[in-house]
C-alpha cells in the first residue's frame, strides 16, 4: 500500500531540520532510512519552533512507531497533549485523554517490552479528570498473560492500585497468576504487597498460611512460597513459629535434622526440598535447644543439598552457639 510521506502531506510547509549531529563522523547519515530521516527532521523542526498542534501530535505517533525508545519524542507528545487539552471542557478533556489512553494501549500491545509507555501512562492518568481503574485492568491482565514476570507491568499495576486506592481485585488476581505458574515470584511478591496494605486479621493470616501450604505441597522445591511463608511469619506473626509449621516443613526433609552427623557411617538421604530444610534451619537456629538441629540442616545443605552456596552455609554454621 502506498503511504504518503509526511512532506507530501500536511507538512509541506515545514522545512525539515538536518538530523546530523555536527560531529566529524557524519558519513553514516546516509544510512538512515528515508522515512525515518524525514519524520525526524520534521519533528526537530516543529520542536524547534515549539509547535503544539494536532498534526504535531500525529507526527509524534509515527516517530514513536519507528523509534519507540526515543524518550525526547514522548516528552514532546506529552507537551502537545497538555497544551491541546488545557482549554477543553471537562467532558471534552475526558474524551481527549481516553482517546490517548486507547492509543497507548494499542501501542503497548505492539511493543510489549517498551517501558517508557508506563510512566507516560501514569502522567496521562494523573492529568485525567476522571480516571477509572476498571479501564486499566484488562490491558494489565493481557500484558501479564503474555509475559507473566514483566517487571514494569507489575510495577505499574502496583502504582495503579495505590493511585486508585483499590485493593479489592488483587488477592484474587495474584492467586490466578500463582495458579497458572506456581514459580512466579512476581505474583508472590504482589500478594505480599497487597496483604500488607489490607491489614489482615488473625483468622485471615491463618487462612493465608494454609494457602501457602497447599502451594508447597503441590511443588515443594520452589523458593517463592517458602520465602513468602517466612515473610508472613515475620510480618504478621512476630516470628513465632508453631509446631504445626515445623512438622509441615519436616515432611519434605526425610528427617535429616534428626540424624547423627558425628557417626561416620551416616548417609544423607535424598530430600524433597532444600528450601524446606533451610526454613527449618532458620527456625531451629532461633532457640538454644534446637541449635544442634540447625547445625545438621546447614551441614546437609553445605555438603549435599545446595553445595554451590557452601560458603554461605558454612558461615551460618560458624555463627551458631
Amino acid at each position: 500500500m502506498f503511504e504518503m510521506t509526511p512532506k507530501m502531506g500536511e507538512f509541506a510547509d515545514v522545512e525539515p531540520l538536518s538530523i546530523s549531529t555536527g560531529l566529524p563522523d557524519e558519513l553514516c547519515e546516509i544510512m538512515y532510512t528515508d522515512e525515518y530521516r524525514e519524520l525526524l527532521g520534521i519533528a526537530r523542526s516543529l520542536m524547534a519552533r515549539g509547535e503544539l498542534s494536532e498534526r504535531a501530535l500525529r507526527l509524534t505517533g509515527r516517530v514513536i512507531d519507528l523509534a519507540p525508545a526515543f524518550y525526547t519524542i514522548w516528552n514532546y507528545r506529552f507537551d502537545i497533549l497538555v497544551s491541546l487539552s488545557k482549554d477543553l471542557s471537562n467532558d471534552e478533556k475526558v474524551l481527549r485523554l481516553n482517546e490517548e489512553l486507547d492509543w497507548i494501549d494499542e501501542f503497548t500491545l505492539n511493543n510489549p517490552k517498551n517501558y517508557q509507555i508506563w510512566s507516560y501512562k501514569q502522567c496521562i492518568l494523573q492529568n485525567h479528570p476522571s480516571p477509572v481503574l476498571k479501564r486499566e485492568l484488562p490491558i494489565l491482565k493481557f500484558m501479564l498473560d503474555e509475559d507473566t514476570k514483566n517487571y514494569h507491568v507489575w510495577s505499574f499495576r502496583k502504582w495503579c492500585i495505590l493511585f486508585f486506592n483499590d485493593f479489592s481485585n488483587e488477592l484474587e488476581f495474584a492467586d490466578s497468576m500463582v495458579e497458572r505458574d506456581v514459580y512466579n515470584n512476581s505474583a508472590w511478591t504482589h500478594r505480599m504487597f497487597i496483604l500488607k496494605n489490607l491489614k489482615p486479621t488473625a483468622v485471615e493470616i491463618k487462612t493465608e498460611v494454609e494457602y501457602i501450604m497447599r502451594k508447597i505441597n503441590y511443588v515443594p522445591q520452589n523458593i517463592s512460597p517458602w520465602t513468602y511463608l517466612r515473610g508472613i511469619y515475620e510480618n504478621f506473626l512476630a516470628s513465632k513459629y508453631d509446631n504445626n509449621i515445623v512438622e509441615f516443613a519436616k515432611k519434605f526433609t526425610s528427617n535429616v535434622t534428626d540424624l547423627d552427623f558425628e557417626d561416620p557411617n551416616v548417609k544423607l538421604p535424598d530430600i524433597e526440598s532444600s528450601y524446606s530444610l533451610e526454613f527449618l534451619a532458620h527456625i531451629y537456629s532461633l532457640q538454644k535447644t534446637t541449635i544442634i538441629n540447625a547445625k545438621r540442616a546447614y551441614m546437609g545443605l553445605s555438603s549435599k543439598y545446595d553445595p554451590i552456596r557452601k560458603f554461605y552455609w558454612d558461615s551460618q554454621i560458624s555463627r551458631l552457639h
Binding site: 517487571y151 510495577s155 502496583k158 511478591t189 504487597f193 520465602t227 515473610g231 515475620e234 510480618n235
Partner: peptide
C-alpha cells in the same frame, strides 16, 4: 527494602 531480603524499584516492588 523487601520482606525477602532484596530491594525493588519502589516500595513494595519485587526484589531485583
Amino acid at each position: 527494602y523487601n520482606f525477602d531480603g532484596g530491594f525493588g524499584l519502589c516500595p513494595g516492588a519485587e526484589s531485583h
